[in-house]
């Protein structure tokens, strides 16, 4: 009886193990979207085209991966988008108005961003309020601060002139430069994105912390009962998201050398959408970092692909909404199948 059962599992197990991967839906989606645009636009599938759509995928991807970890841990961060703006504004303001070296200005931005993440985490874990509400509060407060302080200092709604600051060249090369691969220049942000995805995947799948992240998102009470430091895990996740926001904010500020005070607003939902397309459940406890990165690729391909095809850019949100619905349905089917296969 045992032997027969084991043999049965060998078949079902392999199929199920492939299907149960949270990123399956995203991989299929990526292939379909690529095929769709590549078939109609030779530019889209050329190296230059690829470099072009990988760029928005990279900056979004860094955020989507961090947000995915947080969502697997059972929480949301609506302040992540504006926090990229806050980090960039601190960088440019300190470097251009207060004579800070760019690296020092970035360090200050990092400290502030981590403090915001810590505050989000502390309030959520102490009060047990839904993070959706807590970080909505942070979001609105940061939005106000970004605009208010920028206006007070510059009299306008943007700060610019980062190029003239000391230390700009070095920081720009590392965070916002390009690298040549076979005659095509790729944004260096793509490397940061790959690095962030790799580290996040390792943490999730191969570290104690990863086990805790799945556990606090899956059933916080049960996790705590076996000794998982649930509050610390969640606070670390909020700070990880804040770190990613600082990284992306700095990359964008260095690239454009100026920052609009209203930048990042609305992006928080794009991060969540990319994470969900990548297989994260809104209820927590399930998802993948690679999936979120692939979600960002789909986003980047659609964003640029629509332009390559000469369509009106307004179609982009329609496309995005469709992808989100399809992905959510696919995730549900996959998970239901995975859970239904019983022995």
């Amino acid at each position: 009886m045992t032997v027969a059962a084991d043999e049965r599992v060998a078949h079902v197990g392999l199929a199920r193990r492939l299907l149960i991967r949270p990123e399956l839906g995203a991989v299929v989606g990526m292939v379909v979207v690529f095929a769709f645009f590549a078939a109609q636009s030779p530019v889209f599938r050329s190296p230059d085209g690829i470099a072009n759509w990988l760029d928005p995928a990279a900056t979004l991807g860094i955020m989507a991966v961090a947000v995915a970890l947080l969502m697997i841990g059972g929480e949301f961060d609506l302040s992540a988008g504006v926090l990229t703006g806050t980090s960039g504004l601190i960088l440019v303001t300190l470097a251009t108005r207060f004579g800070f070296n760019v690296w020092l200005a970035m360090l200050v931005g990092l400290v502030v961003a981590l403090a915001v993440g810590l505050a989000n985490g502390l309030v959520v874990t102490r009060t047990k309020l839904p993070s959706f509400i807590v970080t909505l509060g942070t979001f609105l407060m940061l939005q106000g601060v970004n605009l208010g302080v920028t206006k007070a200092i510059t009299g306008t709604v943007q700060v610019s002139g980062l190029r003239r600051a000391s230390g700009f060249e070095g920081a720009n090369t590392i965070l916002a430069g390009t690298i040549q691969v076979g005659g095509t220049s790729f944004r260096v942000a793509i490397l940061w994105w790959v690095l962030v995805t790799a580290v996040a995947t390792w943490v999730l799948m191969r570290s104690k912390a990863g086990n805790w992240i799945f556990a606090v998102g899956g059933n916080e009470q049960a996790a705590r009962a076996v000794g998982v430091p649930a509050a610390r895990t969640k606070i670390a996740l909020f700070m990880t998201t804040a770190f990613a926001a600082w990284l992306v904010g700095s990359i964008l500020a260095l690239r454009y050398t100026s920052v609009q005070a209203n930048i990042g607003i609305g992006q928080e939902f794009i991060y969540i959408i990319a994470a969900v397309i990548g297989g994260c459940l809104l209820t927590g406890g399930y998802g993948s970092a690679i999936g979120a990165a692939i979600g960002a690729v789909i986003f980047g391909m659609a964003d640029k692909g629509i332009v390559f095809l000469g369509w009106d850019a307004d179609w982009f949100t329609f496309f995005l909404g469709g992808m989100l619905l399809l992905a959510t349905l696919a995730n549900r089917l996959v998970r239901r199948y995975a859970e239904e296969v019983r022995h």
Binding site: R206, S207, N211, W212, A215, N219, A223, A225, V228, G285
Partner: peptide, 25 residues
């Protein structure tokens, strides 16, 4: 209150007392 339904048997088994090899689980 015993287990996390979406996590695998082995992940649940060692939850909170994970064996480590260097830094890794």
């Amino acid at each position: 209150l015993a287990m996390i339904p979406l996590m695998s048997v082995w992940r649940n088994f060692f939850l909170g007392s994970e064996p480590t090899k260097g830094l890794a689980f």
